[in-house]
Each structure stands twice: as structure tokens, then as C-alpha cells.
């Protein structure tokens, strides 16, 4: 009677032992070497798998960063904290000034910019822009129906008084808003640059003035006063070239229409 129990138990037991030894051996023999830094980097990443870095997801990015094929500041979601953490893990130094944010190159709110007509159709910027360039008198400016705000996965764009505003602390530079804007007035700029010409109008100065109280009229005062000569005029529109700008703020003092604006929201101090 007792044998009927003992024999199967010992057979199963010895088989188990045999397989156990076999598996233990195989795991040593065929071990796949994993860089523990990949796991650490993966752990530090936000894990949203958004693909904003251009990789297949956070796993792909983690491998890419460790292998050196992806930049350390390549994750648009993580922000500065992530870059710091990754540079700790990998033992490299990164210039923090290079983080980009989206900025809307228009300041034409409902109160600043006139309307050509009253629009009553689909609440969508592309749809509205297909009719005479949209209801706003300025055919270059923000349509104000919030395609960018809807496209932003991080809630970093709010519509205020008919104008999109980027909350730079939330912006992760995923550039989805840039693609969504039918007027192409959202630009990626380095967030350490405080001053921007918030206008995209290529209309002549007189017409800009008629349409909008904060449009750039191309008077050129800013480019004359800029000590580093980094402001150029494209026809009737001033542009601050980010490379040379030292955030001195001379331009904003002379701008007659206040189309140059200061933006300190997401300002990051260089931590190096």
C-alpha cells in the first residue's frame, strides 16, 4: 500500500530534481547579458510609450540612449528632471539650455485683432481657415478654434480669448501642435530664450496696424537697437535668431506695437 505512494513520489521527485538541475545549468550556460543601465534608464523613463522620441517606445529609447544612438535629452516627455537623472545613470554631462518648447508666434487675441466676419461652422481651425483664411482679419494669425490644444497630449495649450497659449512648464516638445496648426505659426524655440516676436504676419505695416494692435509692422527699431545684431527683418516681419540672443531685453523696450514679448514661464537655469 505504502509502495503505491512511494514509487510515484520518488519518480516525480527525481524527475523534478533532474529538470531543476538541467534548467539551472541552461540558465547559466545560455544567459543573455543585459546592460543593467538599460533597465535603470527604462525605470527612469515616464513609460508613456508616446513615441515622441522617434523610437518604438520607451524600451527602444532606453536601449538607444545606452547604445548612444539616441540623445540623452531625446525624450520629450520627461523634461529637465529626466535629463538630470539619465545623465547621472550614464555618467555624462548635458547642456540643459537646449530644451525646446513650443511658442505661438501670434498675439492676436479677440481684443487685439479685428474680425473679418462672424464664423458659424465646424469648430475646427483647418475648416475655418479654408474659408477666406479664417474669421480673423489677419490671414496669418491664430484662428483660435483650438486644433493645437486638442492635439496636445499633455494639456500644455490653453485657448485664451481666441488665442492659443503654451504653458511652457508642461510642454514636452512633442511637436504635435506644430503639425496641427493650419497657419503654421507654432514654432519650436529654445526655452532659455525669453524674447520672441509674437507675430507671423507678412502683410504690409499699414495693413497689420489696421488689423491688429500687437502685430509686427516691420519698423526695424528692434534690429537697430539689438547689441548683438541677432534681429533680422524678413520683409515686414522681425525675427530674433535664437543663437545670438543674450536675453538683454533691449528690443522689447523699443517695440512700438508690443509684438515682442517676454516669456519666462518655462525658464530653466543651466545646471552645468
Amino acid at each position: 500500500m505504502i509502495q503505491e505512494i512511494l514509487i510515484p513520489a520518488s519518480v516525480i521527485g527525481s524527475l523534478g530534481l533532474l529538470f531543476g538541475v538541467g534548467l539551472a545549468y541552461a540558465s547559466k550556460k545560455f544567459e543573455v547579458k543585459v546592460d543593467e543601465r538599460v533597465a535603470a534608464v527604462r525605470e527612469a523613463l515616464p513609460g508613456a510609450n508616446c513615441g515622441g522620441c522617434g523610437q518604438t517606445g520607451c524600451d527602444g529609447f532606453a536601449e538607444g540612449v545606452v547604445a548612444g544612438t539616441c540623445p540623452v535629452n531625446g525624450c520629450p516627455v520627461g523634461g529637465t528632471e529626466l535629463v538630470e537623472r539619465l545623465s547621472e545613470i550614464l555618467g555624462v554631462k548635458v547642456d540643459m539650455a537646449d530644451i525646446k518648447v513650443a511658442r505661438v508666434m501670434c498675439a492676436g487675441t479677440y481684443s487685439n485683432c479685428l474680425n473679418k466676419f462672424e464664423y458659424s461652422g465646424i469648430r475646427d481651425c483647418t475648416a475655418a481657415a479654408n474659408l477666406y483664411g479664417g474669421p480673423s482679419a489677419c490671414s496669418y494669425g491664430c484662428v483660435g478654434l483650438g486644433n493645437c490644444a486638442r492635439a496636445c497630449p499633455f494639456g500644455a495649450i490653453v485657448m485664451e480669448n481666441g488665442l492659443a497659449r503654451v504653458i511652457e512648464s508642461k510642454c514636452t516638445a512633442c511637436t504635435k501642435c506644430v503639425a496641427a496648426c493650419p497657419k503654421k505659426i507654432i514654432k519650436m524655440v529654445s526655452n532659455s530664450k525669453e524674447y520672441t516676436v509674437k507675430c507671423s504676419s507678412l502683410d504690409k505695416g499699414g495693413l497689420v496696424r489696421k488689423n491688429c494692435s500687437v502685430g509686427c509692422i516691420g519698423c526695424g527699431k528692434c534690429s537697430k537697437v539689438c547689441p548683438t545684431g541677432t534681429i533680422t527683418l524678413h520683409g515686414t516681419l522681425a525675427e530674433i535668431i535664437p543663437d545670438g540672443c543674450t536675453n538683454c531685453g533691449e528690443c522689447i523696450k523699443v517695440c512700438p506695437t508690443k509684438s515682442i514679448q517676454r516669456n519666462r514661464c518655462g525658464y530653466v537655469v543651466n545646471v552645468d
Partner: peptide, 8 residues
């Protein structure tokens, strides 16, 4: 001149 369709 601005044309329907938003082009000049």
C-alpha cells in the same frame, strides 16, 4: 487680394 480658400 484674399480669395475664398484663404490664398492671395
Amino acid at each position: 487680394m484674399l480669395y475664398p480658400g484663404g490664398v492671395y
